[in-house]
Amino acid sequence: MLSAEDFALLDAIRETGSLSQAAVRLGKAPSTISYAARQLEERFDALLFDRRRYRLQLTPAGELLVQEAARLMQDLSRLTQRVQQVANGWESRLWIVTDELLEFDTLLPVIREFDTLNSGVPLRMTHEVLKGVWEVLLEGRADLVIGATNEPPSIPTLRWFQLGVMDWVFAVSPKHPLAKASEPIERAVVMQHRAIVVADSSRVTEGRTYGVSGGQPVLAVPTMRAKILAQRDGLGVGWLPRHRVGSLLSSGALVEKQMADPREPNILYVGWRGDHEGRALQWWLEQLKQSHLANRLVQGSDQFY
């Protein structure tokens, strides 16, 4: 493996094109630099320096060695940094999974604030739906889940707290037949129309849906945004997070309907594994316990983009 001195030698020769100038840059005698260059060639059993011209140049093999050495030095530097951060209680990475109900832009200020810590911990942010949120903790595919809607399952070392409460509204397009239906609307009437649902991302257990009766036609879509768009366009009906469709209700793009069987608000949870509590996770938990952040995450924005 190349040492830092070897890499410095190669880089100095490439930049100066002269053994004597490389020696000046490195603060060593020219004879020492010449000897080190030949030793390097013997070690790799390859011609690394083209000495046929006035200006010393690296051969293609020498160029490759310099490029790969630079990459290895960067990798070594990053590895050293990661080892030091883990030794100081920081994680090598923090994987955060949010329920698809939450709007990602509400987390941007928190991410910016986390960056100011200069912890060196890279973040990975993904989302899941319904049972799939808790499942990532069960399978060790996440360190922290935010906004899980189902009650916490039985997972060894699982810890959790309530983030907040999310209200729902049954809303349809003004061009949908239910827009003019008399209220309160009975479940039997809703069953005659296609429901739009966000597909459960669970990979282990059978997926779950809310507000759908047996035998009702269903269109499963990948995200809550897709569900809102589908209902706005009159492709089906269903319950929507009130905070995410406020502007559509105000503009008339969606019409709220009173139901005979109202949907209860959902409690949203934060969950993590208690046996993996590094400094980054602890910081995020402290932020999520603050009421102003919890309210922002749950209430989001009433503007639909």
Rank of each mutant, 00 (worst) to 15 (best):
R203N: 05
A8D: 10
L285R: 06
L101M: 08
R194G: 02
S247Y: 13
L40R: 14
T59V: 06
T59R: 02
L108T: 07
I155H: 00
A29R: 14
K175P: 00
G207P: 08
K227P: 06
L94N: 03
W283K: 06
G62D: 01
L249I: 10
R279G: 04
A70K: 00
D275M: 07
E139L: 12
Q85W: 03
I96K: 08
E41C: 08
R141D: 13
L248H: 08
L249K: 03
L123H: 12
R244G: 04
M73H: 04
G17L: 09
A148R: 02
Y54G: 14
S119R: 00
L235D: 09
G147Q: 05
E100I: 08
E103I: 01
Q258G: 14
P265Y: 08
G27R: 11
V190A: 11
G274P: 10
P262L: 15
S92L: 02
T16Q: 15
E186H: 09
V189Q: 09
G214S: 14
S18Y: 07
R141G: 13
P184I: 03
A220K: 08
R53K: 10
P265M: 13
Y269T: 01
L137S: 12
I111S: 08
I155N: 00
R52T: 14
G27Q: 11
S154R: 13
F304G: 06
L76H: 09
E42F: 02
A69G: 14
V136D: 03
R159I: 09
Q303L: 13
V121I: 12
E15N: 14
P217M: 10
V133Y: 09
L58Q: 04
G278E: 05
V24H: 11
E100M: 07
P156D: 15
F49A: 15
S34H: 10
G252M: 12
D200V: 02
G89E: 13
E128K: 06
V172I: 05
G215T: 01
V198W: 02
R244T: 07
R232Q: 13
Q162P: 06
G147Y: 04
T205S: 07
T106R: 09
D105E: 13
S77C: 00
L281M: 10
E277I: 12
S201W: 06
K175H: 15
L281I: 11
V197K: 01
L144P: 04
A8C: 09
T32W: 14
V237E: 07
A220T: 05
I146R: 11
V298F: 05
G164I: 06
W168K: 05
I155C: 01
T106Y: 00
E128T: 04
P152N: 00
G140D: 12
M73K: 08
M125C: 13
F161L: 08
